[in-house]
Amino acid sequence: MQAKRMGRQSCRLPSRPRVQAFASTAGKKEGEGPLRETFDVVVKDDTLGEKSWEKAEKRMLADTVTLCLNKAGVREEDVDLFLGGDLLNQIVSASFAARGLQIPFLGLYGACSTMAESLLLGAALLDGGFGSRAVCATCSHFSTAERQYRFPLELGNQRPPSAQWTVTGAGATLLTAKPDFPIAVESFTVGRVVDFGQTDENNMGAAMAPAAADTLLAHLKDSGRPLEYYDRIVTGDLGQVGYALMRELCEKEGLALGDRYTDCGCDIFSPEQGLLAGGSGCGCSAVTLNGHLLRMMEKGQIRRLLFMATGALLSPTTTLQGESIPGIAHAVSLEVV
């Protein structure tokens, strides 16, 4: 056990579980953004022909998992675990998708950090010998998130410029214990819940940035690595505001992030799309990882990636009761071996 534990929050994975396949599905707006070429599927219609937004979100997740398995040429019965979650109450998108897939399922809730949470748990379970394949997946949908967290879609209200746009999209990664594939999950850091007292739900980036900085510092300390070890450090959905804050918080700790740091929320939309501070939601980091980033790793353009999905652990009730917004970030280290 001691051999796998590093420091207070991190673990190394000696068997280095591999990424066998990955898949992403993006909504219409995301498909018009700068990353459009990297998604496997861009839906023409965000309803996916379903009767409700919730059904559309569930379908998107189930289809993306199926696509991921098809890309690997693996059948559902060959996958030991499905680890996933989403933003909706009782994580219905993931569990309803699991109902159709019939892969043994563990539902996770880490808000928008779910992609990293599912990856690190999947990799840990495979490293521990508790399975030979695990599929890790998550999704979000603009229209389901709006009606749960904010207002009806057709309400004519304005958002402040710090607000973010929930990404419509789903991403899935198939991990395997077989060392026959080039991209490996090498170590991970489990985040702490960090709360710097932010209460503005229209500025989630500010609420999550301290958690991202905390996890990055913990990862570097636990692993004893310098920042330069990684070609790329990516946060999930801090958006423009959180991105700037993350840089500043790290600078205060003596870490100059430089060019190697990017944020999925900043990269997924272009400023011309007029979506304010950028993307958010579980789908934001999921489609960016399972499209753009893993493709870059496949091509060898990134060799060492620290993927840190960030989550704001609030509910509409806690916000109404005046509670501040706790943030979390989990880090997963991926390497081309």
Binding site: P161, F196, G197, Q198, N203, A206, V241, L245, E248, A277
Partner: peptide, 22 residues
Amino acid sequence: KQKSAYDRMVKRVSPKSEKPKS
């Protein structure tokens, strides 16, 4: 103290609504 310092940082970094235009 850390929280109020962070509040100031957030205020400085966050974009403001363009009031006259709005």
